[in-house]
């Protein structure tokens, strides 16, 4: 079945602005379902979805699971530990076995870049990438876009800076593609040891100083700093990272305008972001989480063949 998105959602890089806009527009009516007392519509009744998580994840897995359940799909969660994967089964065998059980969709999170595409090319079911290595995390990118659009109305010409470990971040890549396609101007800021050497070739502004980034930006997407980066020698210490690159209230107060604060979570409070910022008036971090469910519902709906113009009606139910 061909949908406006194709068979799978693997990355934002190959999507057109129209496709991204379609997902965001489709997410709008789905937001409301989560506000109901009975948070369930029958749209995906009878569909089976496997959440195949080869990497630990709480937020993304739970968000997908809520999205699936609120659309009435039957879901199964497979975590890497305790599965045949830990017995040495290859990804291709795992995929074939799932396919043999006649599933409709797979949501995959994997530590290897390209794993979602690998799976998608080998099974007929729809595949949704829930994060592959350091490649992309498209639904995170989409929920960030939706959150920014909620506040800004349009992303056209808006200046958004992605701060932190861009080198190892799939969130950063999905954000860069998504934001640029929606007309935003994208900056990145972080220690050069955590920025890809070729970053400027992606068409983004590069800031060495967080102060300069804050002065420039209308929104900051603050990335999580993985503790293992310090052990691997990319930065000398978390303490210095906070002092040089931390997004602090003091720094934000010197900004010429209010700066919207996003963070994909989970946060290291006191490292890349101060609590006063995370919990402050310009933080939209919890809006991101709420929007995450709606965006994922939209993606599931569209890949299942749902007509975008019927999304509002698809909410169905009489419990309005």
């Amino acid at each position: 079945m061909t949908t406006p998105l194709g068979k799978d959602l693997l990355a934002l890089e190959p999507l057109t602005p129209e496709q991204i806009r379609l997902i965001l527009d489709t997410a709008e009516p789905f937001k409301e379902i989560s506000e109901r007392v009975i948070k369930k519509v029958p749209t995906l009744r009878g569909s089976t979805i496997v959440n195949l998580f080869f990497e630990a994840s709480t937020r993304t897995r739970v968000s997908f699971e809520f999205a699936e359940k609120r659309l009435s799909a039957d879901t199964v969660n497979v975590a890497a530990s305790g599965s045949s994967v830990s017995k040495g089964e290859t990804l291709v065998d795992t995929a074939r076995n799932l396919e043999a059980m006649r599933i409709d969709m797979v949501v995959i999170r994997h530590s290897a870049s390209g794993a979602a595409q690998f799976l998608a090319e080998r099974i007929e079911s729809n595949v949704i990438n829930a994060g592959d290595g350091t490649h992309e995390h498209p639904t995170q990118g989409l929920l960030d876009l939706l959150t920014l659009r909620d506040r800004f109305g349009s992303l056209e010409g808006r200046r958004v800076c992605i701060c932190g470990d861009v080198l190892h971040s799939r969130v950063a890549r999905s954000n860069i593609w998504g934001l640029k396609k929606m007309g935003a101007i994208v900056g990145v800021c972080g220690p050069r040891s955590l920025l890809p050497n070729a970053i400027a070739e992606l068409g983004v502004e590069v800031f060495d100083r967080i102060e300069a980034a804050i002065e420039w930006a209308e929104a900051l997407n603050v990335l999580r700093l993985q503790l293992e980066r310090m052990q691997a020698g990319y930065i000398p210490s978390l303490r210095e990272y906070n002092r040089v690159f931390g997004v602090t209230l003091e720094r934000l107060e010197r900004a010429p305008r209010d700066v919207l604060i996003l963070h994909p979570g989970p946060m290291n409070r006191g490292v890349e972001i101060d609590s006063a910022v995370a919990d402050g008036p310009h933080s939209v971090i919890l809006d991101q989480v709420t929007n995450g469910v709606a965006v994922r519902m939209a993606v599931l709906y569209l890949l299942a063949g749902g007509a975008p113009e019927l999304a509002d009606a698809a909410k169905g139910g009489s419990d309005r």
Partner: peptide
Amino acid sequence: NEGLVSTRLGLKGIP
């Protein structure tokens, strides 16, 4: 190879 393609694909590059 480390470069634009490795950055896009999210693969660790060899300079």
